[in-house]
Simulated assay, not measured.
Amino acid sequence: MNFGWIAAYWPLLVAGAVQTVLLLVISVVFGFILAIGLARAQVSGPRWLAWPAKIFCTFLRGTPLLIQLWLFYYGVGSLMTMIPGLRGSFLWPVLREGFFFAAVSFTLNYAAYEAEVLRGALLSVPKGELEAGRAFGMSPGKLFRRIWLPRAIRIALPTIAGEIVLQLKATPLAFTVTVMDLYAVAYKVRQDTLLVYEPLLVVTVFYVLVTMLIVRALRLVEAQVPIRR
């Protein structure tokens, strides 16, 4: 085993790790926010909102993430160049990068999966707790914010932890749209040095460590808010 290359490539490794973590954080945070709306629309929304939310989740959960990523990058990306004035706008430096399309596709995909998790959790909240909130005169919005959603999140915490780990393991797909994440750095090292196993071992250790941190953090959260069934 030869790990001498790390001394020359450590700045790229750090930058790649930052890109990977940033992609994970963006997709999980914004995806979860979107998932809340999608789940509520399916559980208690009117039909004109429930059906589009259901179709959205079914479509994104039923197609490979790699295909969705390529559709955004090669499809939507090519169409954006036809928008008049976009290339000269302040948004173009962001919109032209593969990271933007990766973040959007990862966020939407995560939202679709998490919406189904939250939908099941919302339906599993005891009806008596919701009736108690209504008896206190809570409006539907306040009832959802203070009782229904927090209770559902507590129930879904173990599943949410697993979904975040799965999202982390999906991040190497961003390499296919020119994002210089940690896997892309390992690929570059392999091309430059002809070393195969060593760069992949470094990537593997990184993913294992981040997974352990995610699981540990969510277990601490779960310990603070125990799930009562």
Rank of each mutant, 00 (worst) to 15 (best):
Y207D: 04
Y187L: 04
Y183W: 10
L173M: 12
L173T: 06
F206D: 00
M212C: 01
L168N: 06
T204Q: 05
M180P: 01
V177E: 10
V177L: 10
F206W: 04
A174V: 15
V202P: 03
V205Q: 10
E222K: 00
L218N: 05
P172W: 14
V215H: 01
P199Q: 13
L168P: 09
Y207P: 04
V177Y: 11
T178Y: 12
F175Y: 15
D181L: 03
A217K: 00
I214S: 03
V179D: 08
V179W: 11
I214Q: 01
Y187T: 12
E222H: 02
Y207G: 02
M212S: 01
Q191A: 13
V202Y: 06
V185G: 06
A217D: 00
R219E: 14
L200I: 11
Y207T: 00
Y187P: 01
Y207C: 02
V165I: 14
Y197P: 03
V189M: 11
R219L: 15
E222G: 05
T176S: 14
V203R: 05
T176H: 01
V189D: 09
V205S: 06
M212D: 06
L201N: 01
V203T: 13
A170W: 10
A170V: 04
V177H: 12
A170D: 15
E198L: 00
L168C: 13
P172F: 09
V205R: 07
T211C: 06
V205E: 06
Q167K: 12
Y183G: 07
V208I: 15
V215P: 04
A217I: 08
T171H: 00
V202C: 04
A170I: 13
R216D: 00
M212Y: 08
T178L: 11
R190Y: 09
D192H: 03
V196Y: 06
T176P: 04
V210A: 07
A186I: 03
R219A: 07
